[in-house]
Design a protein around this nucleic acid. Sequence first.
RNA 1: GGGGUCGUAGCUCAACUUGGUUAGAGUACCGGACUGUCGAUCCGGGUGUUGCGGGUUCAAGUCCCGUCGACCCCGCCA
Length: 596
Amino acid sequence: MLKRNIYCGEIKESDIGKKMVLAGWVQSYRDHGGVIFIDLRDITGIMQVVFNPEINKVSHSVGETLRSEDVIAVQGEIQKRSEETINPKLFTGMVELKVNEVEVLNKSKTPPFEINEEASQIGEEHRLTYRYIDLRTPVLKQNMIIRHKTTQEVRNFLNKNRFLEIETPIMNKSTPEGARDFLIPSRLNHGKFYALPQSPQIFKQLLMVAGLDRYYQIARCFRDEDLRKDRQPEFTQIDMELSFVDETDIYVIIEHMFKDVIKKVYDKNILTPFPRMSYREVMGQYGMDKPDTRIDLFLADISDLAEKTNFQVFKEALSKKGIVKSLNVKGGARFSRKEIEDLTEYVSIFGAKGLAWIKITDKGPESLLLKYIPVQIQDQILKRNKCQAGDILFFGADNHKIVNDALGNLRVKVAEMLHLIDENKLNFLWIDNFPLLEYNVEEKRFIAMHHPFTSPKISEKEGGTDKQIIEALRKNPENLFARSYDLVLNGTELGGGSIRIHNKAVQETMFEALKMDKELYYQMFGFLIKALEYGAPPHGGIAFGLDRFIMLMLKEDSIRDVIAFPKTQKGICLLSETPAEVSNIQLKELGIKTVK
RNA sequence: GGGGUCGUAGCUCAACUUGGUUAGAGUACCGGACUGUCGAUCCGGGUGUUGCGGGUUCAAGUCCCGUCGACCCCGCCA
């Protein structure tokens, strides 16, 4: 076999005159009857190779048979192209390889789609079925290379900052909190199951108790929940945990990490420190806890003013302890009736029963609502929303969740419609001061908003002593805040973490505040609680969705485009046809019976 | 679990609204010509279970019902 000694994309002018061997795939062929041109592709790029019957008749006749995606090796002299045949579109366009010898390493069937820049327009179902071909396309190939560089630079940064990369078990036990687990039946213990980790949470805390000081892992995580374009059943987190730190220490190191990685891999400069906002602030201004701060549109609470109107929708919402909020869309007065109708339908997804509006024109406000609102109240509403001619003011009146969901998502929707988003911006944002607990309607109890190992604090400003925290956990846990934080990038939640509980009594009281039986939480987490008794240092950590980060940096729409072998919305790998049935023998060994 | 979009040649799409005779185009592919192309060109060729099943009709790619699959969203998930 001809042995490759150079890559297509790495041939330099200094190689002219040398005999070289290239190997790769036939990207395209141009047969002129006499001379034949082949664009040869490998991981690095494309190189034109020329078959000329005057150089080697046998090779030329082989060249005539070559088709797309055949795998060949060619030996010949690198030659400078004549002035008029230089191709400026090709990185190697000033040279070509004059084929002396060719070896067909493997013929290819006609590929199911063409491998070029337009391949991303092909149906995804088809591309996933032939993923190994899809990955040959320039975009996907580049995404894989960038992903590699990203993880390497993350590792470089963390290694330099005294983090140890440590692997934690993939086979764990299932716990009730959080997402649904993927389960693995145990052959040696019939009726018992391992669970795949949703995150390495408890083990990384135990590594801190072990005194390993700083841990990280590029960790695969598994969640058996319904999929979205930014959610796969298995995904990768940059997971870390640090001892003897508070929130600020975490913020600083993470800001440095992103600054460093983004500079080195994506050659962009970002500003640090990242802005910080409290949960209360973002919910107020943006209606969601992952706001896209590239959009300069804001919600306002006008409940106090709505009270003074005669608009029944407002009055009714307020009488049911709801809220009335408004969203001023700059330049939105040009929305047509149809567009407003579509937006009304859009907010109905989130439970909104309607979408009231006031257009601000050169002649003043226009709306069917105006007759219900006294003029001085109108003025105050417009003033509070900083309305100007050309704007449109939308209203939401319902319970807090519906209003925030509707207007928060509407804000993003209209920003897209009006092209208000600067795609070149990278807007990071820390969110802190989350409530510790949130009420779960189905279970009729409070559950941890982040997770039950998160340190509580007694107010937004004040941490409180262990004693105060325990007291508050017993008396009014719903009023506590969490020492947790999320990092948002351009409206996508990149990751989150918290300062953990390292005191046994606090941890126990926390479980009790979640209305868990002592027997139950010891059965689930006893090993962690026990570890807290043996000199657990103060510690905290954070984890980031690696797939999401790369997706955002590459401006891809879906994390599927940055994962080599992703699954469909139904969790199926179309390439390998996973999941699949197993034999009765396997089931029997595992002590499992299936029902249809 | 629910709402929506889509499914026609290897691929991208048209024909669908208003049912009508032989389902078209580009590209890919196949055959031929051609010694400097690089989206090669020129000549010739349609390669199809209109996702699948059923129904309405003289007649269905088109209308109806069901089903399967992909995608987007709600719920779910941090």
